[in-house]
């Protein structure tokens, strides 16, 4: 009997062999590179804080994607939903600065981010339900549009006095930053948001009927419709949940990490969260540890260019190879079981 853990072991072996081969191909010392990845991510408390700072948006996006995957949607638009969340939060902070107490303004700004992220996601959802546009292409197109919007804002209406630049908008005053822990550059509020999203998703999908309905609609829309479940409404609900959580991640990037809007505000975390969710087998349970693993790779690879003259995209290679290996190993297991049956 082949178990899931055997498949995981095979997959891990494949990833290790593949990554070592890639490193040898460029003439880089594999052991040195691997040790750098580990030391650069979990080697000290301050580095761990940076890993968790990446873990927060990854976890938020991955939680949201659980809803859309459960109903059978490929919400590739999650990247743009993060961007729009960041835009919404920045807009609210700019509009309210000086008029409202900082605490109230921060809360309102985050809420604006959630709304805009959800709205951007809803657009892709409506394009799918009413316009017959595949959500992959709707979402992807909207991602590129969102990126254009950010660049236009940074170089146009929100440009720094004097020169507009790729470094982003004028930083907000420190009272509009989410506070950090005393031991590292990590915001307890951001961490709380991610943990909250995990708990909320576990409760909604595990303890209420929402999870069951989403699965029913995703599995057979017609049957669900006959049972009195409106498929369109559940489809849009899943999109709104995913977009809202992605929007919150974008708001956190603005208020807790960069303290301004920058062109690369989403840092590819949306696409990466899709990989996290796939590696988690579309289940919520493994999302948190896998997001931590991915965040560690991202932070650990930052010093590769300096130390070994390697491109930092090595982290992406390992992340992609991991998902691919698990998909193949699992597929192989199912294939063999089918042939023996």
């Amino acid at each position: 009997m082949r178990s899931r853990s055997f498949e995981t072991l095979v997959a891990a072996g494949l990833v290790l062999i593949f990554t070592t081969a890639v490193l040898l191909l460029t003439g880089a010392p594999p052991l040195e590179a691997f040790s750098l990845l580990v030391r650069g991510s979990f080697g000290s408390v301050s580095k761990l804080a940076r890993v968790l700072t990446v873990w927060v948006p990854l976890t938020l996006c991955a939680c949201g994607l659980i809803y859309t995957f459960r109903i059978g949607l490929w919400n590739i638009g999650v990247e743009g939903q993060v961007i729009l969340g960041a835009v919404g939060t920045t807009w609210a902070l700019r509009a309210g600065a000086g008029h409202l107490p900082p605490g109230v303004l921060l809360a309102l700004a985050m809420a604006t981010g959630v709304l805009l992220g959800a709205g951007w996601s809803l657009a892709a959802g409506v394009l799918r339900t009413r316009g017959g546009v595949n959500e992959i292409f709707a979402g992807l197109g909207l991602n590129f549009v969102a990126q254009g919007v950010v660049l236009w804002l940074i170089f146009g209406p929100w440009k720094r006095p004097g020169v507009a630049s790729m470094s982003g908008t004028v930083p907000f005053p420190p009272e509009l930053w989410l506070p950090n822990f005393s031991w590292g550059r990590l915001s307890p509020v951001a961490l709380g948001c991610a943990v909250g999203a995990l708990v909320l998703t576990a409760w909604l999908l595990g303890r209420t009927r929402v999870g069951l309905f989403l699965r029913a609609v995703g599995g057979n829309p017609r049957a669900a419709h006959l049972l009195g479940l409106p498929p369109e409404r559940y489809l849009l609900l899943a999109m709104v949940m995913a977009g809202g959580m992605a929007g919150l991640a974008g708001g956190i990037q603005v208020t807790a990490v960069y303290h301004r809007l920058i062109p690369a505000i989403s840092s590819n975390y949306g696409y990466l969260a899709l990989l996290v969710t796939m590696l988690a087998g579309f289940r919520l349970g493994p999302v948190a540890p896998i997001a931590l693993f991915f965040a560690g790779l991202n932070v650990g690879s930052v010093q590769l260019p300096m130390a070994l003259q390697l491109d930092s995209s090595l982290s992406g290679v390992i992340q992609g190879a991991s998902v691919l290996a698990v998909l193949l190993a699992h597929g192989w297991g199912v294939h063999r079981a089918r042939r023996q049956a």
Binding site: V22, L25, T26, W74, I76, I136, Y271, L274, L275, M278, Q309, L310, D311, S313, L314, S315, G316, V317, Q319, G320, A321, V323, L324, L327
Partner: peptide, 21 residues
Amino acid sequence: VAVGFVLTLMCRDLAYFLGNP
């Protein structure tokens, strides 16, 4: 869709990594 999407991200990163020199 799953395999294609993973490969599109991974091939891009692989291209950047291997093409660095």
